[in-house]
């Protein structure tokens, strides 16, 4: 596949996330160039059903991120439930059990902000459906450091609060439906 200009793709999603991710991740080919890291808000005690299910339906390998794990092509990483997921400057993951951010752990802002610091303009952030404001500060940070931000069209999102909050907080680059987000990732648009 032709190389995207982004070394990492970070995705934040909450209410309705399973369905939205199910329309994006399985569409990506095995040679999809960028590693993907995802924060999905879940109940702290939830098991890894989402991860195993998505892995079975995808060509890419979907897994929970381990601490100190290096981000690699061909992988989709999920924040483990009840841990914040961070990206270090040496392009490895770290985890934390620090305070909730935006009432959430994992928090989208934490992943987005640390991704922006580590990958700077090579960061692509995607904010999907959700019923809270998490991700908006992170989207702002990605833009501040020269990266690109795509937001799911609030009109077509299952919950529109999170996409709207991101659009309000940051100068986002594109507002797209899910199928158009897939087209973008596959470089069809």
């Amino acid at each position: 596949m032709e190389k995207l200009d982004y070394e990492v793709i970070v995705i934040g999603v909450s209410t309705g996330g399973m369905k939205a991710l199910g329309e994006i991740i399985p569409e990506l080919p095995l040679d999809f160039p960028s590693p993907i890291a995802i924060v999905q808000h879940l109940h702290p005690c939830s098991d890894d059903f989402l991860v195993t299910d998505l892995n079975e339906r995808s060509k890419l390998t979907v897994k929970q991120a381990d601490e100190k794990e290096k981000l690699k092509q061909g992988f989709v990483y999920f924040a483990p439930s009840n841990y914040h997921l961070l990206i270090e400057n040496d392009k490895t993951f770290s985890l934390s059990v620090n305070d909730l951010v935006n009432f959430a752990r994992p928090a989208i802002d934490v992943l987005f902000e640390t991704a922006a610091e580590a990958f700077k303009e090579k960061t692509l952030g995607i904010v999907l459906t959700g019923a809270n404001h998490d991700g908006s500060q992170g989207a702002k940070k990605i833009k501040e450091y020269g990266g690109l931000v795509i937001v799911q069209d609030p009109e077509s999102a299952e919950a529109d609060i999170m996409p709207r909050a991101a659009i309000e907080a940051a100068k986002v680059d594109f507002v797209l439906d899910l199928d158009k987000i897939v087209d973008f990732l596959l470089k069809k648009i």
């Binding site: 914040h84 961070l86 400057n89 770290s94 934390s96 620090n98 934490v110 902000e113 640390t114 610091e117």
Partner: peptide, 9 residues
């Protein structure tokens, strides 16, 4: 210490 977390704090 892991930098990302400490820098955030």
């Amino acid at each position: 210490y892991s930098r990302a977390s400490i820098k955030r704090r």
